[in-house]
Design a protein around this nucleic acid. Structure first.
Length: 820
RNA sequence: GGUCGGUUAGCUCAGUUGGUUAGAGCGUACGGCUUACAUCCGUAAGGUCGCAGGUUCGAAUCCUGCACCGACCA
């Protein structure tokens, strides 16, 4: 047993073990081991934003606690790590950083700028993940921007195309005019914006009368295809079916009725333009109205906008309102504050445009998604509603093509002559159609030898929604189904509708199987003020600051204990501070045990004479084992940690250690066998406490284990030891009650000393305990030397008769008297 | 606007299937440097569990309504 130094330096210890663990390779998934059951974690590859925030800390601590716990439970654990590189956000940053637009330089050059920035960001984030001490298998590390990952994304597309899930079609999509790309529903944010509501006169055909429509988008007047009222609105029912003239363009459209119109909004008369918003799309489809597109990809008015063509949307709006005003058709303008859809990457007001895009048929899977979601185990359970509600709410199929650069290319060409679509064959991938022609001689339909590449790329979720299969080894390993479905998919509450959903539809479509057996949801990290953590609210705390100041073990305790799984968790410095204090406590009790166990041989099989408090603490430990194991099984990390901390601090340190000190210090008085019993108990209890804490506090527990236990237990690392077994036979309720009674008496004596303003080590000449019967007397006699040792009693008397002493709280039948 | 969650000690939060006197940390008061630990130990004060009803022998826990806070989403 190595002695422990007086102080422990977390930064040295943590760094040391992180390096050793990595060198030992103990966290690698063992592909050759078929004896152990496997446990696979579908680690979400993070988007390399360059900043590891407290939310990431929470996530990775969850993943890591789970991985370490499962390893100790005897599983061969797969804990992979990838990086979800592609996406608009990085492109926007590159554009800003280099003051360019995506078209200004060749695509491969643009890509490489993105790659450089991503690599920089990955390095920063990886540093924090390493510092957190995650037991990741780094041999699995991958980047979705690597061509080897393209291969998987493209292959999955090809397979789904064969199965009929992928199609190209013209359909209205959310369009970001700044990024010049289609975006999915999941990428649309909503923000409150100030705008104005224009009241405009629309003359009725062949009449001097007019209706006043209210619109927030007057610039869309050239695209107006109908005017709409509520059928129950008596003010306007007589006009339904009549014709009305659209000002500016002087086109005649019909007045139609639809109950979607809110009679209380504006004037109760609205214009339908193709397309102002999603509601317009529904109306246009329902009433089979013509489609007039007046917006270009980059957010300008096109030729159909007549004299306004070439103007930006905002400019056109001003011009049109001005013209209306000149013609006397503008009734009034009102200020309006309303929610508008914006691009979640650049916050530009999105438009709805009808564009040719690639789609995946996701809605035909909705029933399967619901059924599967119900079969998945959710932590916490109520989270599954979010996935189901989202799946049900989807109006459109998933648009998977993007008009961007930094993403996986869509492996498709078109015949230059007959426009035949040529989808790559499985063997061709990875392939960039912009750089390579299809690997066929001629067009299978018309024989032409000229091809046009698909310039669009995939939505980044196309990459990341196959992680469950990819982590398992698909498509390269024959035995990938061993690790599929993933045992757990951990996910933030905010990405259930994207990650959890897309994973579900992709894998259901590809393999007709759920991608994950369980879904562990973490909440959002809030600022100390209980509001969402953000820099603008000035409640932002950077993760590297916390790790730098307190180290990983303390920070991880905040993550574990912060709140129930799935609930939002505020960041609280005092929680981290408490975590650190617990580490100091654990260190000190280990130091104490270390000193008093120097002459202890744990493997010596001598007859042990366990005393009542030894049995008491062992029974409490057995109880703890049950509670902690159950909590860990249910991913209730907060419950597990609280139980262990309370036991360690109060049961082990405050009660047990204090009570047995005298036995350990003075074997010449109490006997060598009494000392051995305490040593044995202390050794075993501390070892198990370290094991319980290992998944949450991996570094310090390892440090203590290596110094004190490794010689006897022979594991290379504590994280390779097995989780303590829960043995109900070790729980002895009677022993616990008896021990509790002894502890209550000790507390009572302390209270008396406190009341008399005496120090705790003030000697007591005689302590007399009066009990009601001989059984109780026996109990106190058994615990006599622990009581007198703790309370510094010189002469302890236990009498089976009523005395006039002070009763012990909770045990009125026990009384005591002290003589100083 | 929709969905979900929350409201328990001065503060931040636990409280599994209803069951003795509702717990913890921080903070507060008082005492103590006791051969692990003053980053500690001991003792104490502090709660009609958001409000109003209901079910029950019994409710922080189940049901209904209301109020407020928040997250996610449209």
């Amino acid at each position: 047993m190595q002695p422990l130094p007086k102080k422990y330096k977390f930064n040295e210890i943590e760094q040391k073990w992180q390096q050793i663990w990595e060198d030992m390779g103990i966290y690698h998934f063992n592909w050759n081991d078929t004896t152990k059951p496997v446990f696979s974690i579908d680690t979400p590859p993070p988007y390399p934003s360059g900043e590891f925030h407290m939310g990431n800390i929470l996530n990775w601590t969850y993943f890591d606690m789970l991985a370490r716990y499962k390893r100790m439970r005897g599983f061969n654990v797969l804990f992979p790590q990838g990086w979800d590189c592609h996406g608009l956000s990085i492109e926007v940053q590159v554009e800003k950083m280099h003051k360019i637009r995506k078209h200004d330089i060749p695509p491969d050059k643009f890509r490489s700028l993105c790659e450089q920035l991503i690599e920089k960001y990955i390095a920063l984030m990886k540093e924090s993940i390493l510092k957190l001490g995650c037991s990741i298998d780094w041999t699995t590390e991958y980047r979705t921007m690597d061509s080897d990952y393209w291969r998987r994304t493209q292959l999955s597309f090809i397979l789904l195309h064969k199965k009929g899930y992928m199609y190209q079609g013209k359909h209205p999509v959310n369009w970001c005019p700044r990024c010049e790309t289609a975006i999915a529903d999941a990428e649309v944010d909503y923000e409150k914006r100030k705008s104005s509501l224009s009241y405009i006169r629309f003359p009725l055909k062949n009449s001097s009368k007019y209706l006043i429509i209210a619109t927030s988008r007057p610039e869309f007047i050239p695209a107006c295809v109908a005017v709409e009222v509520n059928p129950k609105d008596e003010r306007f029912s007589k006009y339904i079916g009549k014709e009305i003239v659209v000002p500016i363009v002087n086109r005649t459209v019909k007045i139609i009725a639809d109950k979607a119109v809110d009679p209380d909004f504006g004037t109760g008369v609205v214009m339908i333009c193709t397309f102002g918003d999603k509601e317009d799309v529904k109306t246009v489809m329902k009433h089979k109205l013509p489609i007039i597109r007046i917006i270009t990809d980059d957010g300008k008015i096109n030729k159909k906008g007549g004299k306004y063509s070439g103007l930006k949307i905002n400019q056109a709006r001003i011009a049109i309102v001005e013209d209306l005003s000149k013609e006397g058709l503008l009734e009034k303008e009102e200020k309006l504050s309303h929610e508008v859809g914006v691009c979640d990457r650049c916050k530009t007001h999105i438009e709805i445009l009808e564009v040719k895009q690639w789609f995946m048929k996701t809605r035909i899977l909705t029933n399967d998604v619901i059924k599967t979601a119900n079969e998945v185990v959710w932590y916490p359970e109520y989270m599954k509603t979010r996935l189901i509600d989202w799946a049900k709410s989807l109006d459109w199929d998933w648009v998977i093509s993007r008009q961007r650069v930094f993403a996986t290319p869509i492996p498709v060409w078109y015949c230059k002559d007959c426009n035949q679509t040529i989808v790559a064959e499985e063997k061709w991938v990875p392939i960039d159609p912009k750089l390579t022609d299809p690997l066929i001689e001629k067009c299978p339909k018309c024989g032409s030898k000229a091809f046009v590449p698909e310039k669009d790329v995939f939505d980044t979720w196309m990459d990341s929604s196959i992680t469950c299969a990819v982590h398992a080894g698909w498509p390269d390993r024959a035995d990938w189904k061993r690790l599929f479905p993933a045992d757990v998919h951990p996910s933030g509450i905010d990405i259930i509708r994207t990650w959890a959903y897309y994973l579900m539809v992709r894998h259901l479509a590809l393999f007709n199987q759920t991608p994950y057996k369980s879904c562990l949801i973490n909440g959002m990290v809030l600022g100390s003020d209980g509001r969402k953590m953000s820099k603008s609210l000035k409640n932002y705390v950077a993760a590297p600051d916390v790790l730098g100041k307190y180290g990983s073990d303390a920070t991880r305790q905040w993550a574990a204990a912060g709140g129930a799984t799935g609930s939002d968790i505020p960041f609280r410095w005092p929680d981290v501070e408490y975590g650190r204090r617990f580490l100091v406590k654990l260190w000190n009790v280990s130091k104490f045990a270390n000193r008093l166990l120097q002459d202890f041989a744990p493997n010596k099989k001598s007859q042990l004479e366990l005393q009542i408090l030894d049995k008491w603490v062992l029974s409490k430990l057995a109880n703890l084992t049950q509670k902690v194991t159950q909590a860990m099984e249910n991913s209730q990390f907060n419950v597990a940690l609280e139980e262990i901390r309370t036991f360690t601090w109060h049961v082990l340190c405050d009660s047990y250690v204090e009570a047995v000190k005298d036995r350990l210090y003075r074997p010449e008085i109490h006997g060598e066998s009494q000392k051995e019993a305490a040593q044995h108990t202390l050794f075993n209890v501390l070892y198990k406490v370290l094991k319980f804490l290992c998944p949450i506090i991996p570094h310090l527990t390892e440090e203590i284990y290596q110094a004190m236990f490794a010689d006897f237990k022979k594991h290379k690392s504590l994280s390779l030891a097995s989780w303590p077994q829960s043995i109900p036979n070790f729980i002895d309720e009677e022993i616990e009650n008896n021990g509790d009674m002894i502890i209550a008496l000790i507390t009572e004596v302390r209270r008396e000393k406190a009341e008399k303003r005496l120090p705790l080590n003030a000697p007591i000449k005689t302590l007399t305990i009066y009990t009601k019967d001989s059984r109780t007397t026996e109990i106190f006699k058994e615990g006599a030397f622990d009581i007198s040792g703790t309370c510094k009693v010189e002469n302890l008397k236990v009498l089976a008769k009523k005395g006039r002493g002070k009763p012990v709280t909770d045990y009125p039948e026990v009384q005591f008297k002290t003589e100083l």
